[in-house]
């Protein structure tokens, strides 16, 4: 069986990151934008784990752990914001959420 090359893993991570970026750029619903941000964070974590596995060091997985904790904190605050936005504006369209004061 052939071996996996390091650039193959990084290309997979790049494809996943780019898919998440395309999701953020094309979607107008906040929920879908948050999902795409999760995809991008996950792709960054994949790149870290691949680097840690390439050099046989534990640091890659530790950085992945920190990305994971950051993603969890970010998504909890963002979903609370989504609930408030839906409660106050009755919409999730980002183009209608233009006013800072209500």
């Amino acid at each position: 069986m052939s071996t996996v090359h390091a650039h193959t893993v990084l290309i997979v991570a790049a494809i996943l990151f780019v898919l998440g970026l395309a999701g953020v750029l094309t979607r107008k619903n906040i929920i879908f934008m948050l999902i795409s941000i999760e995809i991008m964070l996950n792709a960054a974590g994949l790149a870290f784990v691949a680097a840690g596995s390439r050099w046989q060091q534990a640091d890659g997985q530790i950085m992945y752990l920190f990305i994971l904790a950051m993603a969890a904190a970010e998504v909890s605050v963002a979903l609370a914001l989504v609930l408030q936005i839906q409660h106050q504006h009755k919409t999730l369209d980002v183009e209608q959420l233009t006013a800072l004061k209500d």
């Binding site: 071996t3 996996v4 893993v9 390439r54 046989q56 890659g60 530790i62 752990l65």
Partner: peptide, 18 residues
């Protein structure tokens, strides 16, 4: 191109470093 090593970074190493 460099090949990925087949060895495993165990949870023990990760937690000791963490």
């Amino acid at each position: 191109p460099t090949a990925m090593p087949a060895a495993v970074v165990t949870p023990r190493e990760v937690s000791l470093s963490l």
